[in-house]
């Protein structure tokens, strides 16, 4: 464990960008965990006399049309947005990596069928597909998660399939079988962990993408409903006021969204280096 930490330290020293992105992600997670307890105002309580105030010392990000504090809302929204993204990505990672690894290992008919299914899935405009799914399944948070997970699935299947496929003929895979491991065990305990470092990049990029996706769905009025604080809805609601110069209603949640996506995107490469034991000496 200490070796892992020392190695992580070495990687981060060499990649200040990763370190910065890591700090950013840490900040987001902290906001998600502690948000409701550390915000200065109740994010849902309206205070109409103070509506549409520009950013000030009392309201750092200003107030919205109902007088709610935008800063509190942006901070509290981190929990919902990160939770949606994290659950959706873990769901598609677990299913996608398992299915893809087995396909890559087994080859043959299973591989061909799953491959075609993935091709069909990818032929749809993915965001439109997600919209259709949420609309059909019902306007609930868990449906956003399922929809986001399904549209991410093809990437994980393809990626793990390709990575496992190049490794299945290697000596240590045969050695694992000679050591008494079944095919299934070889895939789960030998091949999957070896594919993980490369997939970390994909997971990290995907997290950013899933946040955008969830926000995008909410922006269109699918999924999360007001007055729940959520970055997508806040941008959607604020858009009405942008023509009258109330820029903070869009800019603040928008900037939070951008910050989150950027952090996860930048984190990816460093994460791979940290997880790969071959990068250690």
């Amino acid at each position: 464990m200490s070796a892992t930490l020392r190695h992580a330290g070495w990687v981060l020293r060499g990649n200040p960008v990763t370190l910065l992105a890591g700090c950013g992600c840490g900040l987001l997670v902290l906001a998600a965990l502690l948000g409701p307890w550390i915000v200065p105002y109740d994010p849902i309580a309206s205070d109409v006399p103070n509506a549409l105030q520009a950013p000030s010392a009392a309201h750092w990000f200003g107030t919205d049309q109902l007088g709610r504090d935008v800063f509190s809302r942006v901070l509290v929204a981190a929990r919902l947005d990160l939770a949606i993204a994290a659950s959706a990505v873990s769901l598609s990672f677990i299913i996608g990596a398992t299915v893809g690894s087995f396909c890559g290992y087994a080859g043959g008919r299973l591989d061909a069928w799953v491959g075609r299914f993935v091709d069909v899935l990818m032929a749809f405009p993915l965001f439109v597909l997600a919209m259709a799914m949420v609309a059909a399944l019902g306007n609930r948070v868990e449906n956003i998660i399922y929809a986001t997970a399904i549209i991410n699935l093809p990437f994980y299947i393809r990626f793990s399939r390709a990575e496992v496929n190049v490794r299945r003929g290697l000596g240590w895979v045969e050695a694992a079988r000679a050591s008494g491991n079944s095919h299934a065990r070889v895939v789960m305990r030998f091949l999957l962990p070896n594919v993980l470092p490369a997939m970390a990049v994909q997971i990290s990029l995907n997290l950013g993408w899933a946040i955008l996706n969830a926000a995008g769905l909410s922006f269109l009025g699918l999924g999360v409903r007001p007055p729940t604080p959520e970055w997508g809805i806040m941008v959607a609601e604020g858009a009405r006021f942008i023509t009258t110069g109330k820029w903070w209603l869009v800019a603040c949640p928008g900037a939070a969204l951008m910050f989150a996506v950027l952090c996860f995107n930048l984190l990816g490469d460093g994460l791979r280096d940290i997880l790969d034991p071959r990068m250690r000496t």
Binding site: L170, G171, W172, E174, A175, A176, F190, N194, P277, R278
Partner: peptide, 10 residues
Amino acid sequence: FQDHGESLNP
């Protein structure tokens, strides 16, 4: 196996 580098799980 032949290639010892390749026959050990990294």
